[in-house]
């Protein structure tokens, strides 16, 4: 009796859950595969960190590994545990952090962590990753089922093997219900520049708002338009950038 027969009789089934199709927001960010998140301009790193902390929800419970290149850790410091605690509503995942001096060291550490399978998410703040590096990490991530998120500086351009590339910039926060002079829920603009899993979605602009009471990331209804729709202006801008 071969495996196909066993399967047809229902005696054999795959133990792993079938892969979830990553077609909706956030297109598999932090769930499966390799994703790039980049700053729109220098100084947007905090917005980018906030976006990743709120949007990335690994499928498995487990420890996170946060890799930072020393230059970024020296520039803006690390992500404190308190932020992770507030973002997850008081149940932060255990997190190991490490700072790597050079880019090869950081990329090596990412791959090592993915291959080991001991962590549930790897977040790496690195200065660059070329096509070879991202392809290599994508393959490793797919084989071992550990999602990877790369946080990149605004210089992140060009070809990539990552499943998606996001570009994050901060937006003025939501109006505060209780105090009009105080900042409200944080808002970001996330532009999905590239998307391998859903190529049609590339160019979509998401105006997102993080509600720290309900712990949900929602789309802001635009000022004039309705819910988040592909923004033609941004699409043209991306097309122009690709062409140039």
């Amino acid at each position: 009796m071969d495996i196909a027969t066993l399967k047809s009789k229902g005696l054999l089934r795959a133990v792993s859950a079938p892969p979830v199709a990553a077609v909706g927001f956030p297109f598999g960010l932090g769930t499966r595969g390799l994703h790039e998140v980049a700053e729109a301009a220098y100084g947007d790193r905090a917005a980018m960190t906030g976006f990743v902390l709120t949007a990335a929800r690994p499928a498995q419970a487990g420890a996170w590994l946060w890799i930072t290149q020393t230059k970024f850790a020296g520039d803006l410091g690390l992500v404190p545990e308190a932020a992770l605690r507030q973002v997850t509503g008081g149940a932060p995942p255990p997190r190991l952090s490490l700072t790597a001096r050079t880019l090869p060291d950081a990329l090596w550490a990412v791959e090592e962590a993915v291959v080991s399978g001991a962590v549930s998410l790897v977040v790496a703040e690195i200065e660059a990753a070329d096509f070879t590096a991202t392809r290599r990490l994508t393959l490793a991530s797919g084989r071992h089922g550990v999602p990877v998120v790369l946080l990149m500086p605004p210089t992140c351009e060009g070809a990539t093997a990552a499943a998606t590339r996001w570009r994050i910039s901060p937006r003025p926060s939501a109006p505060n219900r209780y105090d009009p002079h105080a900042p409200g829920h944080p808002r970001w603009r996330a532009v999905l520049e590239r998307c391998r899993t859903a190529p049609n979605a590339a160019g979509t602009v998401f105006d997102l708002e993080w509600n720290d009471e309900t712990l949900s990331l929602g789309v802001v209804s635009g000022l004039a338009a309705g819910p988040a729709a592909p923004c033609p202006v941004a699409r043209e801008a991306i097309a122009r950038r690709k062409a140039s």
Binding site: G62, A63, L96, L98, E112, G117, V119
Partner: peptide, 28 residues
């Protein structure tokens, strides 16, 4: 189930520490 496999985690930390220097992997 949970990936809280401390043995696998410390094995990973050992390998990273062996290459990048002792004490590189840290916990907050």
């Amino acid at each position: 189930g949970s990936a809280m496999d401390e043995i696998a985690l410390s094995a990973l930390a050992d390998r990273i520490n062996a290459r990048l220097g002792d004490g590189t992997v840290s916990l907050i």
